[in-house]
Structures are given as structure tokens and as C-alpha cells.
């Protein structure tokens, strides 16, 4: 792991891996969308509306996974001072924010026909909305503070403190009486969803994960290039 903390080695690895990751992403999306829109049957209670779940659930999973990646990277940045850890956390945030927004928006589009309301302030929805605010706040810190070392330190603290919200989101449906349904895929006693609906969901979850991996590697590559350019400009102005 230590050897990939070197930006040059990381870039070389990323450049070699990216074409394969993109191909796998496209294949997974093609299979997953076929399963979601063609193969999976309508639900006996929800009808065709159940198909919203295939884009809503993976977006929600990724919103939580990306924030976990940010918190881990921030912890690594504080403990080991890896040169790439802050880059990884910073570049993951906009991607996670988009997934979080999509989870909220597609959930709302499911809620209106099923619950009769676009939005309710129940524990799962509220904690997910808090996650979105955490993403926005984290991005705002990097935008607002010009001095990169200071921005990185504050951003690390926000990412780590905000991580408390992730188990709250996961267990909100168990801890409180919510309108949102309890966990039905990732359960200790096995999934309660029929395989015909579960497999497209799992494939699309994998597709979203590979999409994140591809976009994250590319974002890290551009952030490394931006930082390298800034360092070269500073070095040149020092020579002049």
C-alpha cells in the first residue's frame, strides 16, 4: 500500500487500470439496466414503481460508501501523512454529493406515488439529508479556504466528525420508528428480496461502484496535475 502513496507510481497504475475499469463499468451498466427495465418483474404491491429502487438504492449505497472512503482517507492523512490521502478525500466529495443528491431525488420520486408525499422528516430521510449537507460543507471548506494546508486540516476534521452520521443512516430504520422500509438486502439473516429483483440491484450496485472508482481515479489524476502545476509556478516565481 505504501508504494502507491507515491504520486508517480499511483498515476502510472491509474493510467493502466482506467481503460479496463471503464469497460467493466459500461458492461455492468448494460447488464444491470437490462435486468432493471426488462428482466425484473413488477412488484405485486408497488407495480412498476419498484423499478425506481434500481437507481435509488445503489445511489444511496454509494453516497455512504464514498463518505466512508473520505473519512478513511482523512484518518490516513492525519496518522500517516500520505501525500495522496487528502487528494483522495477531496476528489471523492463531489462524486459522493451527486450520488447523495440522486438518492434523495429518486427517493422522493418513489415516495410520492407510494407514500403520497414527496418528503417526510423521518429518521432515514433526515440523516441522508444531513449527509448531503456534510458533502456540501466539506466541498465549501476546500473552496473557501485559500491556504491548502489549513483547508486540508479543517476538511479532515469535518470528514471524521461527519462519519458519525453513517451508522446513524444505516441503523436509523432499526433505532426509530420510520416510514422508510427496514433493511431488505444487507441483513444478518439474509435478503428478503426475491432473486429476480435482487440480481439487477446487485449488478447496478457494482456498476455504480466501478463508476465511482473510474471517476475518482480520474479526479485524483487531475488534482495531482493541478497541484504539480501550482508547485512549479511557485518554484518559478521563486527563481525570478
Amino acid at each position: 500500500m505504501q508504494q502507491f502513496a507515491n504520486p508517480t507510481r499511483f498515476l502510472s497504475l491509474a493510467n493502466r487500470a482506467l481503460p479496463t475499469i471503464w469497460v467493466v463499468t459500461i458492461i455492468l451498466f448494460a447488464i444491470g439496466l437490462y435486468g432493471a427495465l426488462v428482466s425484473a418483474p413488477p412488484d405485486y404491491q408497488q407495480g412498476e414503481t419498484v423499478r425506481i429502487m434500481f437507481v435509488h438504492v445503489p445511489a444511496a449505497w454509494l453516497a455512504m460508501l464514498v463518505y466512508t472512503v473520505m473519512a478513511l482517507a482523512s484518518a490516513v492523512a492525519i496518522i500517516f501523512r500520505h501525500p495522496l490521502a487528502d487528494v483522495a478525500a477531496k476528489t471523492a466529495a463531489p462524486i459522493g454529493a451527486v450520488f447523495c443528491f440522486l438518492a434523495l431525488a429518486t427517493g422522493s420520486l418513489w415516495g410520492k406515488p407510494m407514500w403520497g408525499a414527496w418528503w417526510v422528516w423521518d429518521a432515514r430521510l433526515t440523516s441522508m439529508f444531513v449527509l448531503f449537507l456534510l458533502y456540501v460543507g466539506y466541498i465549501a471548506i476546500w473552496q473557501a479556504i485559500e491556504e491548502p494546508t489549513r483547508a486540508a486540516m479543517i476538511a479532515r476534521i469535518v470528514a471524521l466528525v461527519g462519519f458519525v452520521n453513517i451508522p446513524i443512516i444505516k441503523f436509523s430504520v432499526d433505532w426509530w420508528n420510520t416510514l422508510h422500509q427496514p433493511a431488505s438486502v444487507l441483513r444478518m439473516d439474509g435478503s428478503t428480496i426475491d432473486w429476480s429483483i435482487r440480481w439487477p440491484l446487485l449488478v447496478l450496485g457494482l456498476a455504480y461502484s466501478f463508476l465511482f472508482l473510474a471517476l475518482h481515479l480520474m479526479s485524483m489524476r487531475s488534482e495531482i496535475a493541478t497541484r504539480k502545476l501550482r508547485n512549479l509556478q511557485i518554484a518559478r516565481s521563486g527563481e525570478a
Binding site: V55, P94, L102, A105
Partner: peptide
């Protein structure tokens, strides 16, 4: 089917935001 427009809106929104994100990153 009933509420098919909600399904279409959810997929269209996901497609639009993911495409926008990909274009931004590239």
C-alpha cells in the same frame, strides 16, 4: 402502467446527473 412517469423521471434524472458528472470529470 400507473406512475410510469415517476419511473421515467427517476431514470432520466439519474442519467442526466451521472452524464453531467462524467463530462465534468473528463
Amino acid at each position: 402502467a400507473d406512475h410510469a412517469s415517476f419511473v421515467a423521471a427517476a431514470y432520466a434524472l439519474s442519467l442526466a446527473f451521472i452524464a453531467g458528472l462524467i463530462i465534468y470529470v473528463f
